[in-house]
């Protein structure tokens, strides 16, 4: 079943909350929060968060197109709301990414 936008937002906020405790981020976490400017994430963090989203929803999402667009912005940054919109827009109903381990054997 395809998760709703609210569900995606809830999932993502839960991950960010569990992680941000580890680097003692105590600022706000809402749709307007910027991953880099506000939360202090680095570019690689965002790429890895993207990889985690794909594992979580078992889907390959067009993150590289998304990052290409963000990378060309004057201030390359992403708000939580934008992140959720991107996932919501591209998640299809059917999970398609299975762990490859063993599949090729």
């Amino acid at each position: 079943m395809q998760p709703s936008r609210d569900q995606i937002l809830t999932d993502f906020l839960a991950i960010l909350r569990s992680l941000s405790d580890d680097w003692e981020y105590s600022g706000e976490l809402n749709e307007k929060t910027c991953l880099i400017a506000d939360m202090g994430l680095e570019s690689l963090d965002i790429v890895v968060l993207g990889a985690n989203v794909q594992a979580q929803y078992k889907q390959v999402l067009p993150f590289s197109e998304f990052f290409a667009e963000v990378g060309q912005r004057e201030l390359p940054d992403i708000t939580i709301g934008e992140w959720v919109d991107f996932i919501h827009e591209h998640l299809s109903a059917q999970p398609i990414l299975e762990s490859k381990e063993g599949v090729a054997a």
Binding site: V47, V48, G50, A51, Q54, F63, S99, K100, E101, G102
Partner: peptide
């Protein structure tokens, strides 16, 4: 690469390992 002929690339993860590891 995202696909055989794709120009898009992504960071590889444990999901991309296509053979069984000795741990498994």
């Amino acid at each position: 690469k995202e696909a055989a002929n794709s120009a898009h690339i992504r960071l590889l993860t444990s999901n991309d390992v296509g053979a069984e590891t000795i741990w498994s």
